[in-house]
């Protein structure tokens, strides 16, 4: 990747990052880029953050009803009063006819009720959290499948099979490539999950050229149905030969392959 391409990549991710519009992986990728960013890139990031905040000024200023201010002031004044320590009322104390045991009983009942309420609330909250995480997971699976179908629906797609090499001979993979759209689908099967500090990286090797990175991929459990959308394959195919390879690289990927090669396949 040339310096200009890297800068364009930084700009594109930066715009998405400040608008909170990237995937988790892209967010991590950008945060890594930011760690090694040049002063100009850091300035760009700060400028874009400021511009994002200024987009609020594009909305039409509108006056809320007076009730809102009254409600806010009532809420914060009430809290203010609550936070003031109560001064003991000596006069009231001298004429108090309610026995001490009545206060103690009321306090005990209140404590038991509070504990029961806290337990029930905690239990419910756990159930809701669990169901929420299931919904999020299903939603992301659905999103992923829709994205894959978009690539598969391309007019001219090319299939490249990749075979497992020494580190994992039982592994295999496929690339379904749509050069017109610059996108592809990658299948990784029977590969071990990468260690925490590593990612798998996909490479396109065109005849007589250095390998071109097509993205990094990660998963937690080996499987035969791991599909990924490849968005960084905006390359013209070589007329002579196009080879795809998957290597294991340091987290976030590297400009040129350095690690073990797990899969290799050439376009027929």
């Amino acid at each position: 990747m040339t310096n200009e391409e890297q800068h364009n990549d930084f700009e594109a991710l930066c715009a998405g990052y400040v608008l909170d519009a990237l995937t988790d992986r892209e967010n991590r990728q950008f945060e890594e880029m930011l760690r090694d960013a040049t002063p100009e890139q850091i300035q760009l990031f700060e400028d874009m953050m400021e511009i994002r905040d200024e987009l609020a000024l594009a909305s039409e200023p509108t006056s809320p009803s007076l009730e809102v201010e009254e409600n806010i002031m009532a809420a914060i004044t009430g809290e203010n009063e609550k936070s003031q320590p109560d001064e003991p009322d000596l006069k009231a104390g001298s004429t108090n006819i309610i026995p001490i045991w009545a206060y103690q009983a009321a306090a005990a009942i209140f404590l038991i009720a509070s504990l029961t309420f806290a337990y029930v609330t905690f239990d419910l909250s756990e159930t809701v959290d669990f169901q929420q995480s299931q919904i999020t997971e299903l939603q992301s699976q659905l999103d992923r499948q829709e994205q894959l179908l978009t690539v598969l629906s391309g007019r001219e797609v090319t299939l490249v099979n990749m075979n497992g090499l020494d580190p994992s001979p039982e592994g295999y993979g496929k690339i379904i490539w749509d050069p017109d759209q610059g996108e592809a689908v990658l299948q990784l099967a029977n590969l071990p999950a990468p260690p925490q500090d590593k990612d798998y990286q996909l490479w396109l090797i065109k005849a007589g050229q250095n390998p071109i990175s097509a993205g990094v991929f990660n998963f937690e459990r080996p499987s035969t149905d791991l599909f990924f959308r490849v968005e960084q394959l905006n390359e013209e195919p070589s007329e002579e030969s196009n080879t795809f390879a998957v290597t294991l690289e340091p987290k976030g990927g590297v400009p040129q392959p350095t690690g073990d090669m797990f899969l290799l396949g050439e376009q027929q």
């Binding site: 609020a56 000024l57 909305s59 039409e60 200023p61 509108t62 006056s63 809320p64 809102v68 201010e69």
Partner: peptide
């Protein structure tokens, strides 16, 4: 800030 934030 009320009008700006309410508009937003």
């Amino acid at each position: 800030y009320k009008n700006l934030l309410f508009g937003l």
